[in-house]
Structure formats: C-alpha cells, structure tokens
Write a protein that binds this DNA or RNA. Structure first.
Ligand SMILES: Nc1nc2c(ncn2[C@H]2C[C@H](O)[C@@H](COP(=O)(O)OP(=O)(O)OP(=O)(O)O)O2)c(=O)[nH]1
Ligand SMILES: [Mg+2]
Ligand SMILES: [Zn+2]
Length: 857
DNA sequence: CAGTGATCTATGACACC
DNA sequence: ATTACGGTGTCATAGATCACTG
C-alpha cells in the first residue's frame, strides 16, 4: 500500500480472487496487527480468515511504535504473542517475515531518503519526519529492515520466544510456504507471436501491392536483380509474420494521403525494397541506378565508389531522350531483418505532429475487431484489447534522487549540502535511483496482439498513470520486456512532415518535387553563401542553422571539418553526428590521422558490409553490428567478436572504433533524414520567409519578441546574454530554446528580412505569418509568455469588427465576443499589459473616453 | 475588490525513437 | 569559449490568469 493512502485492491476483491495466490497478513499497518492491538479477540480471528499465512516480524521492525511511545515494548510483544497464539489456534501458518526494504544494513539511509521525500500526489510516508513534530523525543532511527539472514532472524526472535517457536516460524514455516509456490511460472513469452490472423489475406495483398508497384516503377520486365531482391525479401517478410504490419503500414500511409497529409520515413525499414514498393518508406535501398520513367530502361551505376543514386550525373535516356530518374542508396535488407530473421524489427513511421492522435486512432480502427471498435466508439471498456499502446515505467533517476538527498540533508539532518559532502551526496543519489515513480505512454509504439491470442498471454494492461480518462490503454510491462514476442508499429510524431506540409501550403510548391541534388541547397552544408547574408556578425561558416539534425553547434562543427559535397557525404555525416563517441574521440581522430570519411564507421550497415567483405561470416558480422549499435552501456566487445575480427585481419583501429561506439544509425534512417533536411533546406534557400515563419512556428518554443524584433544589435545582445549565462552554467531549457530562436532570427535579419513586432490587427493567434509586401514575418500573439490561446483567438475574433479604439475597448470587445459554438473568450488585464509592454498598443488610450479626448486634442 | 477555485501555461524530468 | 547525438511524447508540479463570489 502506498504511503498513507487507500488500499490498491479492496479486501472483497482479494477474497474473490484467491485462486493460485497466497495472501500474507503484512506489517504493523495491516489489519491483523491493528486488530490485535485495538480490537477484540473475535475480531482478530475474523480478520485472519482471509490469509494463508500470518506474519510476525523481528521486533526491530516495530521500533517506530515503541520510539514514538505509541506502544511500550512489553505491550508490543504481547500483541505479537497474541497474533502467534491466535494464528496457531486457527491452524493458520504463522511465519516470521523480514518485510525487508533493502539488502544491506548500511543501505538503510536509502530507505530513509524515500521515507522523507514527498510522495507522488504530495502525500507523506507514515514514517515521514514531519509526523515526529509533536513528539517529546523525536530523535530516533527509523526501523532497520534490511534482508536478515536466517541467523539474524532467529537471534531476534530468540530474545523473546522459546527456541521451538523460533525454529517453527523462522525456518519451518518459510520452507512450507516456499514449497507451496510453483517455481516455473513463465510470465513472459520467449518466442515471437505474429498477428497473421488479425487481417487475413494480408500476405496476398502485400504481394499484389509490391509487384504492382514494381511493374509501375520498373516496367513489365524489371531487371532480374530487382525482381530477385523483391522475391527474397517478400519470402522473408511473409514467412516470418510481417505481412500484417507491412500491409497496415501501407494502408495507414494511403489513408494519410487521402486525408491530405504525408508520412515521413524513418528507421531500419528503409532497408527493405518491399517496404519501398509498398509505400512504407521513401528510401530505395537498391544499388545506385538510372531509370527511364518512360521506357523503363534501367542502368546500374558503373562506379562502385558511388553509393547514392542521388549523386549520379544527370542523364537522358539513350532510347527515348527522357531525363532519367536517379535513385538507389546501397542498403542491405539484412539490416532490417537479419539473415535468418534473427531480430525482431518494428515498422517506424513519422506522422506530422498534429496528426499523430488521428494516426493512432486509425491504426486501432484498422486492426481491432468489429465489437472492439463499437466499444471504442461508445467509449465503453474493452475487455481484452488486441491493439494497445506500449506502456512505460518512469523511475526516480539522477535529478530526482539528487533532490531527495539534498532535502534529506536540509530537513532531516538540518544542514545544507556543503563542499565536503559532495562526494557522499553523489554516491547516495546514484544508489537511490531506480525506484518506480509513475507509468506513462510510449511515444508512438502500438503493439499488435495476435487475434487468436489475448493480451494476458503477454502482459497485464492498465491506464497510463492509472488515469481512466486517458485515450489509450497501455501494456503494464514496458515494450522492451516483450520486444521479441510481439510486433509493434512505431507511429511517432515529428515536426518534419508537419513543417513540409505547412511550407507546401504557404508556397504552393510541393516538397515531393524538390530535387535531392540542387547545388545551391547542398552548398548550405559547407557555406552560408547561398543565403546572401548582408552581414555575418557571428561569422557563420555554414548555412545549416535551423535545418533538422544539422543545425546544432556540434553538427555544424562536423560539417566544417568534413565539408560534404554529395548526398552520400551527407549520409555519412548524418550517421557520424548521431550517437555518443561516433565522431568525438573516434571517427574524428581517425579522419585527422588520414582515414577517409568512407573508411570510418558512419552507420551500422557499414560494419556488417565491411566485416563480410573482410571474410567474417555473415552471421557473426550481423551480430557484431547489432551489438555495437545497441551498446549504450559501453560494455566491452565480446571476446568471440574480437577473435572473429582479428582472424579476418580486421585492423585494430577498426576494432577499437567499434568498441567506442554507443549508438549507430542504420543507413536507411540517415537517408530518410537527409532527404527531409534537404527538402527543408530547399525552402530555406528559395522561400526564406515561409521557411522562417514555419521554423519559428513549428520548431521554436520560447521567444522574446522585443529582442527578436529589435534588429541585429538587439538580437546580438540577446544571444550574448544567454551565452554568457550559459558559460556560468546559469541557463535552463527555456534559455536554450530562446537561443535557438535568436540564432534563426539573426540569420534571417542578416539576410535582409524583417522580423516584425506583434501586430494587433495582423498577428495570428498562434501561427507565424508572412508579409510579402514588407518582406517580413509577423509573430503570433501566443509567443508572448503566458498569453493564452483563448485570449489570442478572442482578439482575432473581435478585431473583425474593426480597429480597437482603446485598451478598454479591446478588453470589453474580446469579453463580449463569442466563438463559433457560442462560448465566450477569457481575457483580462494581464493580456493588455503584456501587449502594451511589447509595444503592440501604441496609439491606444486607456479608455474610450480618453481616446475621444485625445483625438479632440 | 480580495479571495477562491478552475483552467491554462511553463518547466523539469524521464522514456524512447 | 568549449562541450557535443538530435528530437519527440508524456507526466507531475508550480505558477499565472481569469471568472465568479459575496
Ligand atoms: N538520434 C537518434 N536516433 C535514434 C535513436 N534511437 C533510434 N533512433 C532513430 C533511428 C532509428 O533508425 C529510428 C527507429 O528506431 P528503432 O528503435 O525502431 O530502431 P531501428 O529501426 O533502427 O532498428 P530496428 O530494426 O527497429 O531494431 O529512430 C537514438 O538514440 N538517437
Ligand atoms: Mg525500427
Ligand atoms: Zn527511355
């Protein structure tokens, strides 16, 4: 039971669900102890009925009752005796239990930390120090409840019970209970159960779709290598149970397109040509090739050092003169599924952030039974869902635990953490981590339970954070613990597809028509020249600011060093710039010592390809790749891996590089993200106003409009202020966000565009707007801190009636205004003051009378 | 017109891709 | 000035703001 709260399970429910479970009577907070101390013998006997065994604990466990003088030690022992006697009388098994809260005596302080920390809903632990405030003698230790050995248990009870009883309750009864337990209950499945039955016929449909698209794209007689790859992939996909998730992903993307939005590609599934043919990913993993869109003539690239079809030179079809398509990214299918389905991949999709909820709902609709869908539609509970959100478990980690220790020092020990305490405080905080705090929802993981099985075959389920108003049920176990037994669709929210949609809408230019090899766009990654900066105060060396995954200081520095010229160069850099110790202290040193970008490890496929090429057997090469990309904890390479590599004469620097890597992209993911970045970069070059407006709207979360609209000097001052405070470690996430906004603002203004102030008559409620006439962007009302969405909407509504005459007029007209459903808006004086403060109310008097008065003058 | 409760916004922390 | 993986979703909590109340 949680600290001082109500029971999690009613006793009636316990009584009704007793099968296969043993109930014990628990500690001094339990019913049996309190009845033994406060109620009649009859009531105690009744309370004991439910339990399979009756617990008594070492008297040290009850020290709090004695120390607070709630009970004398004699009284305590007589209560415990009456529990033992009554249990014996009822022929209940009486057992000595430790109620242990930690393993070693010296770890007691960790429990004390939690006893004295504020519990989740603001509640307090029953032993919290605050409860001692009224006591005459509040200075005593909380009970010692480490994991007692049999000897310690016996010793404790021997001080007040006969030897025969001690042996019986400490040793015999414990063994009897152990014998009652079935030792081989398996809660988690060990093999994969695929959802073939959820959508019968998926395999055939998937084949139809892929071969249909193969014909449309590559013609009636596709190159045998291509046909062969599709055949082999589909066999692997279908035989291993991935038809349904592939087909559902295909349907989801079709559905999204029919609703007017697009789905971004991500993840290892871009390694699958079948996925490309099914529309699940834009990444084409074939070797680089030319393709005539008209006569379907295909030409493989002849230069083996060229790895991306996007880097092929322009070419006209020798048959019909059409400009040929260029594609193919040299990615092995095995990155996705292994050579023999040794791994269980998911299918990843990037939905526009503002459509994520819709996408999840559609998935549930497509995969649930008719009955389940009817229940969802009515908001009724579904007993055994087959489509469920993966759940997460959040624990107390470093920040929280540091806070607990700090508060413990201040409130319990009565002193601040001093310089001499630092080492012990870090030690304690580290040791205190890992305690569950709350549960939540996976960012996008939707788990598919096979229709011929049920959720309980895999996991219990619940509401996230036990909140019954949540839109989705979640798995009780986190996904990682079921990773190899169920399939999941990972439908994540992302800004890229949303931003591209918005820029498409604002400019009328479809991002799908944007080429992947526009020289000006590619030049942004090595120089800001294409931006036409009129000033360059911060000496920007690239034009990569505000480009997704390329605009940070770290990645810009990498760009400066590596100077990418081609799409493939960008792929490599994308890989090198993601993951700890991929570039820093690893590839960077290798490049400095003469290795080329192509030689160093840039993505996980590189490892597998290279090792196979060196003669390592494919299965081991695959295993090494997977181990390296998942080695977040920094464990040493397995000896058999090192051995296999040495045997194949893999150079030591390569083995060493593998050792250092903590995470590695698949090449397919890098491809998808470079494509997204290049599209965004295209708008940055050719449609700057729409680009910056969209950037501020979609990717920035904190602004200071006075600073940003104040011109170059003002923005520079803002940047400097944050950088100085950052050097002193005095900044927070919000400052970082502001710095992001200021950097983009500076670049934009240095290109000669204007960042306007909030405009009472023109600003949108929450979107950044473009003014072509004034060559500017106009910020929305809501970029003022604490400016509520409703107030902003109210102003937009009220100003339809014409200009505001005064502050009072503004306030009263918004208060009077009604939205489409007749609801009023909420607005108060703080909003007026905030608008006045940024200078958006210049020329407006206080009241209507005043404005008339001023006007007459 | 201060007090109050309801609702929205900001922030920090964490899990996960 | 240097460090350096980037980006997303969710939950808990504190703070700000507003309408309502008497
Ligand atoms: N920058 C960065 N991106 C990540 C990280 N983890 C995952 N991603 C991105 C790249 C992955 O390809 C993509 C999908 O994640 P997944 O967990 O599904 O892994 P992936 O698809 O690569 O392999 P899988 O075949 O599903 O095991 O998300 C990370 O730690 N950092
Ligand atoms: Mg994946
Ligand atoms: Zn042709």
């Amino acid at each position: 039971m949680a600290a001082g709260s109500t029971p999690k399970i009613d006793i009636e429910d316990l009584a009704q669900n007793h099968k296969n479970v043993l109930y014990g009577s628990a500690c001094f907070n339990g019913e049996v102890f309190s009845d033994a101390s406060e109620r009649s013998q009859e009531e105690l006997e009744k309370a004991m009925e439910l339990y399979d065994y009756i617990e008594v604990q070492p008297k040290e466990n009850y020290s709090y009752l004695v120390d607070t003088e709630e009970l004398s030690e004699d009284r305590l022992l007589s209560i415990l005796r009456s529990i033992i006697d009554t249990g014996d009388k009822l022929h209940k098994r009486v057992v000595a239990t430790g109620d242990c809260h930690y393993v070693n005596p010296e770890d007691k302080i960790l429990r004390d930390l939690y006893i004295n920390a504020k519990a989740l809903g603001g509640g307090l632990h029953p032993l919290h120090y605050i409860h001692r405030e009224e006591l005459k003698n509040p200075d005593f230790e909380s009970p010692d409840q480490h994991f007692r050995s049999t000897k310690e248990m016996l010793d404790s009870f021997r001080s007040w019970l006969p030897e025969e009883v001690c042996q019986r309750i400490v040793v015999d009864a414990s063994n009897e209970i152990a014998d009652l337990c079935n030792g081989d209950i398996k809660i988690l499945k060990s093999k994969l159960y695929t959802p073939d039955a959820n959508l019968p016929g998926s395999a055939e449909k998937l084949r139809e779709i892929c071969y249909g698209n193969l014909k449309n794209t590559y013609g009636d007689n596709p190159d045998p290598k291509i046909k062969d790859r599709l055949d082999k992939e589909l066999a692997g996909i279908i035989n291993n149970g991935y038809s349904v998730t592939y087909y559902i992903a295909h349907l989801l993307i079709k559905w999204a397109n029919s609703k007017g939005f697009f789905v971004g590609s991500r993840g290892s599934v871009g390694s699958s040509f079948a996925a490309n043919m099914a529309g699940i990913t834009e990444v084409n993993p074939l070797p680089p090739h030319y393709l005539c869109p008209k006569c379907k003539r295909l030409e493989w690239a002849t230069d083996p050092s060229l790895r991306s079809g996007f880097d092929l030179a322009k070419k006209r079809c020798p048959h019909c003169g059409e400009e040929m398509l260029r594609n193919g990214q040299s990615i092995p299918f095995e990155t996705f599924l292994g050579f023999h389905a040794e791994k269980v991949p998911d299918i990843d999709l990037n939905f526009p952030q503002d459509r994520l909820g819709l996408a999840h709902d559609e998935t549930r609709l497509l995969l649930s039974t008719k009955e389940e869908n009817e229940a969802y539609a009515k908001g009724e509970p579904v007993e055994s869902p087959h489509v469920i959100r993966a759940g997460t478990i959040a624990k107390a980690e470093s920040k929280n635990c540091f806070g607990y220790v700090k508060k413990y020092y201040e409130d319990v020990l009565g002193k601040a953490v001093g310089p001499d305490d630092q080492a012990y405080v870090s030690y304690l905080s580290e040791k205190a981590t890992g305690v569950k705090r709350t549960t939540g929802q996976h960012p996008g993981g939707i788990v598919v339970i096979p229709a011929d099985m049920e959720i309980f075959d895999f996991t219990p389920y619940q509401y996230p954070a036990d909140d019954p108003t949540a839109g989705w049920l979640t798995t009780h176990f986190d996904f990682a613990s079921m990773h190899d037994s169920v399939l999941k669709l990972d439908e994540l929210g992302h800004v890229d597809p949303m931003a591209l949609r918005i820029m498409h809408e604002l400019t009328g230019i479809d991002f799908r028509s944007i080429p992947m090899n526009d020289p000006k766009v590619l030049s942004l990654f090595t120089s800001p020249k294409a931006l036409g900066l009129k000033e360059n105060r911060l000496d920007f060396k690239t034009g990569a600011i505000a480009l997704p995954e390329f605009g940070t200081n770290f990645v810009q520095g990498l760009l400066e060093e590596a100077k990418p010229k081609t799409f493939n160069d960008l792929l490599i850099i994308s890989g090198l710039s993601h993951g700890t110790n991929v570039w820093n202290g690893n590839a960077e040193d290798l490049v400095l010592s003469g290795k080329s970008l192509e030689q160093v490890i840039g993505c996980r496929d590189d490892i597998m390809n290279y090792l196979i090429q060196m003669g390592v057997d494919s299965g081991t090469a695959f295993k090494i790749m997977e181990y390296v990309r998942k080695n977040k904890a920094g464990n040493p390479l397995k000896p058999e891996f090192e051995e296999a590599m040495r045997k194949a004469k893999v150079p030591e620097w390569y083995i060493d590089s593998c050792r250092k890597i903590r995470y590695l992209f698949p090449r397919a993911h890098a491809t998808a993200y470079v494509m997204a970045a290049l599209r965004v970069a295209w708008y940055k070059v050719y449609c700057p106003l729409e680009f910056y407006a969209t950037y501020f709207f979609t990717r920035c979360h904190s602004f200071d409009i006075k600073i940003m609209s104040g011109g170059i000097d003002s923005i520079m001052a803002g940047i400097q202020d944050i950088q100085e405070r950052s050097a002193r470690k005095e900044t927070n996430d919000t400052d970082d966000e502001k710095l992001k906004s200021y950097m983009a603002a500076l670049e934009m203004v240095e290109r000669g565009y204007t960042l306007e102030n909030i405009n009472l008559m023109e600003s949108d409620s929450s979107m950044w707007k473009v003014s072509k006439e004034r060559n500017s962007v106009i910020p929305p009302f809501t970029c003022i801190p604490n400016f509520s969405q409703r107030a902003a909407e109210g102003i937009v509504e009220a100003r339809k009636e014409g200009a505001f005459l005064s502050k009072e007029n503004l306030l009263s007209r918004v208060k009077k205004a009604k939205d489409a459903s007749g609801q009023p808006y909420a607005i108060g004086n703080s909003i007026i003051e905030a608008l006045d403060d940024v200078g958006a109310l210049k020329g407006l008097g206080e009241s209507d009378q005043m404005s008339l008065f001023e006007f007459n003058f």
